[in-house]
């Protein structure tokens, strides 16, 4: 039987990809953020997951406003990265866990989530930066992915509560998957930041602390706010925390926090990384 080994939540700021390309991980500006991945690397080396189920938002690489799904699930056997227009190097493609994708799709539609399915999908920095952070320098990438895209671009966004419910339904699908894979759940984006408007540069450390403290034991406390509440509290792009909420849902009811890191600023963002062990791992270890 497949096993959900744990979850990783992390910022996906494009500038992190630039810092990796330039080898700046130990520069004073970057080191406090990259150091947050040391426990993640140690844990991944021990856990050796085969598949990463990734909740993220596309930033105008794969999806344009002509067709903007609220929730989209990748169903490809390969996902290519591509030029996003502002200079990040194009990363090597990542394999897709295609059969698991269709299992998740079957389960989600069965649970009345009316998702979009994508047999061809480009993945942007919101996938490639976290993969580089988790498995630096690895070629080929050691995991296959199931990408799950949440609309954070065009309002109305899905409610945070609906994102949590989606994540929980994905978690049920993973629990019933008969494959032998070891699965890690990723949620990317956030925390507080705002790129646009006169409030550009807005960061809210108090709200971020609330999210960091609640996402493990009580994600419903974050998900009770509306998407617009979160825009106000975390910034227009800080609303990407709904990707974290969905990922947390997919980890199952019981999680134990293994590490967290929070650092202001990376680019315009309050950057954060969290690592969780999940209930199935906890039982296996007992």
């Amino acid at each position: 039987m497949a096993k959900i080994v744990g979850g990783i939540l992390t910022s996906h700021v494009p500038a992190i990809g630039g810092a990796i390309a330039r080898g700046q991980q130990n520069d004073p500006y970057w080191k406090p953020f990259f150091d947050g991945f040391k426990p993640v690397h140690k844990w991944l080396a021990a856990q050796q997951p085969d598949v990463a189920v990734m909740f993220y938002n596309d930033h105008g690489l794969n999806f344009f406003l002509d067709k903007m799904p609220t929730f989209a699930v990748g169903a490809a056997d390969l996902y290519r990265n591509a030029d996003e227009g502002w200079g990040l190097p194009v990363m090597q493609a990542v394999g897709g866990a295609q059969a698991l994708s269709w299992h998740i799709i079957e389960h989600l539609v069965g649970a009345e989530f009316d998702i979009t399915t994508c047999q061809s999908m480009l993945v942007d920095h919101a996938v490639m930066v976290p993969i580089q952070l988790c498995w630096p320098g690895a070629q080929p990438w050691p995991v296959k992915i199931v990408p799950i895209v949440i609309n954070t671009v065009q309002h109305p966004l899905p409610s945070p509560a609906r994102c949590l419910a989606l994540g929980r339904a994905v978690g049920e699908a993973l629990a019933s998957w008969q494959g032998a894979e070891r699965i890690v759940v990723l949620g990317t984006g956030g925390l507080s930041h705002q790129l646009d408007g006169e409030r550009a540069g807005f960061i809210n450390a108090d709200y971020d602390r609330f999210c960091l403290d609640q996402i493990g034991p009580n994600p419903d406390a974050i998900a009770k706010d509306s998407a617009l509440d979160i825009v106000e509290l975390a910034g227009t792009q800080g609303v990407e925390v709904i990707n974290w909420i969905a990922a947390r849902g997919a980890m199952g009811a019981d999680v134990r926090e293994l590490s967290r890191n929070y650092h202001i600023p990376i680019s315009n963002t309050a950057a954060a990384t969290m690592l969780f062990e999940t209930g199935s791992s906890l039982r296996a270890a007992a």
């Binding site: 105008g60 406003l65 227009g85 065009q154 309002h155 109305p156 006169e198 617009l228 106000e232 910034g235």
Partner: peptide, 28 residues
Amino acid sequence: IPGTPVFDGEAAARGYALNRMCYSFNDA
């Protein structure tokens, strides 16, 4: 929300041509 654009359907409809042009800039 003060100083905070909310990109909703009205904005998305109004901005379609501009955003479509910018989307084309994924291609060098």
